[in-house]
Nucleic acid binder design. Structure first.
Length: 491
RNA sequence: GGCGGCAUAGCCAAGUGGUAAGGCCGUGGAUUGCAAAUCCACUACCCCCGGUUCGAUUCCGGGUGCCGCCUCCA
C-alpha cells in the first residue's frame, strides 16, 4: 500500500507552529492518545477528544499510512483534584461500592468502549492499562534515579525538575517565575515544589499497591503514559495527542521524564484538542450541566453527535447547545439523502458515457480536492464538511439533470463514501438499523402504497392524504418522488 | 494572584491585511395535485476603546466576558 500524495500540516503544540507532517518511518504513523481514567461514565468532553482523534486516525489511514494507534486506559493513580486527602478516584469509588478498584475500572472501561462504539469511534490498535505496566514504570524510574534526575524521599520517588533544563518546553511556562510568584513553601519531602511524584509510598489504607525497589507503593500519574507509549511505539514516535487540560502538567512531565530516561526525543508532534462547553459555560459536576455520552445517544444518533463535534475544529472550543445539535442533525440528513440518491441511481443508471457525466465528474474532482486540502490543513474538519455539502448540492442537481452513467455515478459514490463515511464517519453503516427495521413491514407497505397509487391515479387526493397522514401518525413517513413513493420509519 | 487561549449573523461555526466559507433557522422563487425532499436567490460592517497601515474582522496595546492550566495535590 502506498501513501497517497498529500501536503499534511499540523499544529505542533511543541513549538506552537504549523509544521509539515513527516513520519519517522515512511509510510507509518505511531500515535499515542491519553485515554480516560475509568472511574465514571464518559461525558461529552471525552466525546470531543476521542471523536477528534478518531477522524485524525481515519484520515491517516485514508492517506494510506499504516497506523499504530495506542490509547491507554488509566485504572489507577489519579488523585481527586479537589480533595484534601488526595484520594485515588478509583479507590474512592471502590470503597463506596465495597468492591475491588479493578472492578470499578473494568466496569467503566466497558462503559467507555460501548459509548465509543455508539459514536462510531474505532478502537485503538492497543488499549494498554496502567496497572498492567507497573514493571515498565518502575524500570523508567530506576533509570531516572541512576541518571540523577530522580531522588527518593520519605518512601516516595520524585522527579527533580531542576535537573532537567528543558522542563517547560511544551507548555511554554516559565516555571521559575511561577514558583516565585506564589507563596508555596516546599512541603513534604520534595526538594523543589515543582518536583512531581514518580512513585508514591502506599499507606495501609491503600487497596492497590505493588512491590518496588522502594517498598510497597503505587506509581505517579504521569509515568504510566511514558511507560506505555514507549513500550509500544518506541522511545521516539510520531504523535502524542490528548486534551488541552493535560498539556500542563501531565504532558510536560511526560516529556521530561521520558527524555531524561532515554535520551531520545519521545513524541515529535504534540496535538491537543480543545474543550467543550454548554451554552457558553463549562460543564462540570458542580454546575450539574454535564452530559453523559450514553444519555445523549438515547436522544440522537451517533453520527449526529459526530457531525456536531466535527463541525468545530479540534483545537477550537466547542459550544454545545440544543439548537446546535438540531442543526447538525438536519444538515446530516442532507448528507444522507444524497447518499441514498446515488445508491438508487446505481440501480437504473445506463452504462457508457452520458451527457450528465461532466457535471458529476466536476463535483467529484472538486470534492476530492477541497476535502483533502481541508484535512491537510491541520485536520480542518469544518471545512472538510463544507466540501461535502457543496458536493451534495452539485450531485443532487446533476442527478436531476441530464442522464448520468453508472460509471460516473459509481465513482462519485465511491469517493463520497470514502470521505464522508470512511474519514469522518458521518454516513450510516451499510446494513444498519434502517433496512432491518423496514424488513418486516416491506410486504405490507407494498400493498398500502399500491392501493394509494391507484387512488392517486383516480385523483382521489383527499383519500391519499388521509393515508399518508395516518401512516405518519404511526411513525411511517411517505414521500412522493418522481420515481415513485419512498417510505421510512421514523426514530 | 500568575500563565495561556478564545470572543464572527437568531443558533452552530470556518477564515483572511483589502470590505467574511459551510450547516441550521427564516424569507422569496422553481418543482409538486398537496406535502416532503431537491434546486435557485436573499439575510453579518466580525465584543468595546485606542494605535500601526493607503486600508484591519484579521497586527499591537488597554478593557470586558468566557475557557483551560497553575495557585492545595498528583
Amino acid at each position: 500500500m502506498t501513501v497517497r500524495d498529500h501536503n499534511l500540516h499540523l499544529v505542533n503544540t511543541l513549538g506552537r507552529l504549523k509544521e509539515r507532517f513527516v513520519p519517522l518511518v515512511p509510510g507509518h504513523v505511531g500515535i499515542y492518545v491519553c485515554g480516560p481514567t475509568v472511574y465514571s461514565d464518559a461525558h461529552l468532553g471525552h466525546a470531543k477528544s476521542y471523536v477528534s482523534f478518531d477522524a485524525i486516525i481515519r484520515y491517516f489511514r485514508h492517506l494510506g499510512y499504516k497506523v499504530k494507534y495506542v490509547q491507554n486506559i488509566t485504572d489507577v493513580g489519579h488523585l481527586l483534584d479537589n480533595a484534601d486527602e488526595g484520594e485515588d478516584k478509583i479507590e474512592r469509588r471502590a470503597k463506596l461500592e465495597r468492591v475491588h478498584p479493578l472492578e470499578i475500572a473494568e466496569a467503566y472501561a466497558r462503559s467507555y468502549f460501548k459509548d465509543m462504539e455508539g459514536l462510531g469511534v474505532a478502537y485503538a490498535d492497543l488499549h494498554p492499562r496502567a496497572t498492567q505496566h507497573i514493571p515498565e514504570q518502575i524500570e523508567i524510574i530506576e533509570q531516572l534515579i541512576a541518571k540523577g534526575n530522580a531522588y527518593a524521599a520519605g518512601g516516595n520517588i520524585y522527579f527533580s525538575v531542576g535537573s532537567w533544563k528543558e522542563y517547560g518546553c511544551l507548555s511554554g511556562r516559565d516555571t521559575d517565575d511561577a514558583v516565585e510568584g506564589t507563596r508555596v513553601t516546599v512541603r513534604g519531602d520534595k526538594r523543589d515544589p515543582r518536583d512531581f511524584a514518580l512513585w508514591k509510598h502506599a499507606d495501609p489504607s491503600h487497596i492497590q499497591w505493588w512491590r518496588s525497589p522502594w517498598g510497597k507503593g503505587y506509581p505517579g500519574w504521569h509515568i504510566e503514559c511514558s511507560a506505555m507509549s514507549m513500550k509500544y511505539l518506541g522511545e521516539e514516535f510520531d504523535i502524542h495527542g490528548g486534551g488541552l487540560e493535560n498539556q500542563f502538567p501531565h504532558h510536560e512531565c511526560e516529556i521530561a521524564q521520558s527524555r531524561a530516561a532515554t535520551g531520545k526525543g519521545f513524541a515529535r508532534y504534540w496535538l491537543h484538542n480543545n474543550m467543550i462547553n454548554r451554552d457558553g459555560v463549562k460543564m462540570s459536576k458542580s454546575l450539574g450541566n454535564g452530559i453523559l455520552i450514553k444519555d445523549l445517544l438515547k436522544e440522537v444518533p451517533g453520527t449526529t453527535v459526530r457531525a456536531f463535534l466535527l463541525g468545530t475544529h479540534y483545537r477550537s472550543a466547542a459550544n454545545f447547545t440544543d439548537e446546535g445539535v438540531k442543526a447538525a442533525h438536519a444538515g446530516l440528513e442532507r448528507l444522507h439523502f444524497v447518499l441514498g440518491a446515488m445508491r438508487d441511481r446505481m440501480k437504473s443508471a445506463p452504462s457508457g458515457a452520458q451527457p450528465g457525466d461532466a457535471a458529476v465528474g466536476d463535483a467529484v474532482v472538486t470534492l476530492d480536492r477541497d476535502f483533502h486540502a481541508a484535512m491537510d490543513d491541520d485536520f480542518n474538519t469544518p471545512i472538510a464538511m463544507s466540501s461535502l455539502y457543496e458536493f451534495a448540492k452539485r450531485m443532487n442537481a446533476a442527478l436531476a439533470g441530464a442522464p448520468v452513467s453508472k460509471e460516473a455515478c459509481g465513482a462519485a459514490l465511491d469517493t463520497y463514501v470514502a470521505l464522508a463515511g470512511g474519514v469522518l464517519g458521518l454516513l450510516p453503516v451499510e446494513g444498519d438499523s434502517e433496512d432491518g427495521r423496514k424488513g418486516d413491514l416491506e410486504p405490507v407497505m407494498q400493498v398500502v402504497l399500491d392501493v394509494r397509487r391507484l387512488l392517486r391515479e383516480r385523483k382521489l387526493f383527499d383519500l391519499t392524504d388521509v393515508l399518508r397522514d395516518r401512516l405518519a401518525s404511526v411513525g411511517i413517513d411517505v414521500k412522493d418522488t418522481k420515481d415513485g413513493p419512498v417510505w421510512q420509519r421514523r426514530g
